[in-house]
Deep mutational scan, measured.
Amino acid sequence: KTVKFDGLQFDFDNPEKALKFALEVAKQKGAEVHIHGDEIKIE
């Protein structure tokens, strides 16, 4: 899975870790997590 935000991109082999990371970043930024297939966007 790939996590994208602020023009940055982070690749994870483990989908659970990717989602956990995305949710943590979103919480800190006050943003929402959007999942599109293998891509997780924080907006």
Rank of each mutant, 00 (worst) to 15 (best):
1 K>R: 12
1 K>N: 08
1 K>T: 14
1 K>P: 09
1 K>L: 13
1 K>A: 13
2 T>K: 06
2 T>Y: 09
2 T>A: 05
2 T>H: 06
2 T>R: 09
2 T>E: 02
2 T>G: 03
3 V>F: 06
3 V>Y: 05
3 V>S: 01
3 V>H: 03
3 V>N: 01
3 V>W: 04
3 V>D: 00
4 K>V: 12
4 K>S: 10
4 K>A: 07
4 K>L: 13
4 K>C: 15
4 K>Q: 06
4 K>E: 04
4 K>N: 06
5 F>K: 00
5 F>E: 01
5 F>V: 08
5 F>M: 05
5 F>T: 00
5 F>A: 02
6 D>C: 15
6 D>T: 04
6 D>G: 10
6 D>M: 13
6 D>P: 02
6 D>V: 04
6 D>L: 11
6 D>N: 11
7 G>P: 04
7 G>T: 05
7 G>K: 05
8 L>W: 09
8 L>R: 10
8 L>G: 02
8 L>A: 05
8 L>Q: 09
8 L>H: 06
9 Q>S: 13
9 Q>A: 10
9 Q>Y: 07
9 Q>T: 13
9 Q>W: 08
9 Q>P: 03
9 Q>F: 08
9 Q>R: 12
9 Q>H: 08
9 Q>I: 13
9 Q>E: 10
9 Q>M: 09
10 F>W: 13
10 F>S: 00
10 F>E: 00
10 F>D: 01
11 D>K: 13
11 D>S: 13
11 D>H: 15
11 D>F: 15
11 D>R: 13
11 D>Y: 15
11 D>W: 15
11 D>E: 12
11 D>T: 14
12 F>I: 03
12 F>N: 00
12 F>L: 03
12 F>H: 00
12 F>V: 01
13 D>F: 05
13 D>Q: 07
13 D>L: 08
13 D>V: 08
13 D>Y: 05
14 N>L: 05
14 N>E: 09
14 N>P: 00
14 N>V: 05
14 N>H: 06
14 N>I: 05
14 N>A: 06
15 P>K: 06
15 P>T: 11
15 P>S: 11
15 P>M: 14
15 P>L: 14
15 P>R: 08
15 P>Y: 14
15 P>C: 15
16 E>F: 11
16 E>R: 09
16 E>A: 10
16 E>L: 10
17 K>S: 13
17 K>A: 14
17 K>W: 11
17 K>M: 14
17 K>N: 11
17 K>L: 14
17 K>P: 01
17 K>T: 13
17 K>I: 12
18 A>P: 00
18 A>N: 00
18 A>V: 00
18 A>E: 01
18 A>T: 00
18 A>Q: 00
18 A>G: 00
19 L>T: 01
19 L>C: 15
19 L>V: 00
19 L>P: 03
20 K>H: 07
20 K>G: 04
20 K>A: 13
20 K>P: 00
20 K>Y: 08
21 F>C: 13
21 F>Q: 03
21 F>P: 02
21 F>K: 00
21 F>L: 04
21 F>R: 00
21 F>G: 03
22 A>V: 01
22 A>C: 13
22 A>F: 04
22 A>R: 00
22 A>S: 01
23 L>I: 10
23 L>T: 06
23 L>D: 04
23 L>H: 08
23 L>K: 07
23 L>C: 15
24 E>W: 14
24 E>N: 05
24 E>V: 06
24 E>R: 08
25 V>A: 06
25 V>Q: 05
25 V>D: 03
25 V>F: 11
25 V>C: 15
26 A>G: 01
26 A>P: 00
26 A>Y: 05
26 A>C: 14
26 A>F: 04
26 A>T: 02
26 A>E: 03
26 A>M: 04
27 K>Q: 10
27 K>H: 09
27 K>Y: 10
27 K>M: 12
27 K>C: 15
28 Q>G: 06
28 Q>C: 15
28 Q>A: 12
28 Q>M: 13
28 Q>L: 13
28 Q>S: 11
28 Q>V: 09
28 Q>I: 12
28 Q>E: 10
28 Q>N: 08
29 K>W: 15
29 K>R: 13
29 K>E: 07
29 K>V: 14
29 K>C: 15
30 G>P: 02
30 G>Q: 07
30 G>C: 15
30 G>R: 07
30 G>H: 08
30 G>V: 05
30 G>Y: 06
31 A>V: 08
31 A>N: 03
31 A>F: 12
31 A>C: 15
32 E>D: 09
32 E>C: 15
32 E>L: 13
32 E>M: 14
32 E>H: 14
32 E>N: 12
33 V>Y: 07
33 V>E: 01
33 V>R: 00
33 V>I: 12
33 V>L: 11
33 V>M: 07
33 V>N: 02
33 V>A: 04
33 V>H: 02
34 H>E: 06
34 H>F: 13
34 H>Q: 08
34 H>M: 09
35 I>V: 10
35 I>R: 03
35 I>K: 04
35 I>M: 09
36 H>K: 09
36 H>L: 11
36 H>Y: 14
36 H>W: 10
36 H>S: 11
36 H>T: 10
36 H>A: 09
36 H>C: 15
36 H>I: 12
37 G>N: 07
37 G>I: 07
37 G>F: 09
37 G>W: 08
37 G>R: 06
37 G>S: 05
37 G>K: 07
37 G>H: 06
37 G>M: 07
38 D>V: 08
38 D>C: 15
38 D>Q: 09
38 D>G: 10
38 D>S: 10
38 D>W: 11
38 D>L: 09
39 E>K: 04
39 E>R: 04
39 E>M: 11
39 E>D: 07
39 E>S: 07
39 E>W: 10
39 E>Q: 08
39 E>L: 12
40 I>V: 04
40 I>W: 04
40 I>D: 02
40 I>C: 10
41 K>A: 10
41 K>F: 15
41 K>E: 09
41 K>I: 15
42 I>W: 03
42 I>F: 05
42 I>H: 04
42 I>Q: 02
42 I>G: 03
42 I>V: 09
42 I>T: 01
43 E>G: 12
43 E>N: 08
43 E>S: 11
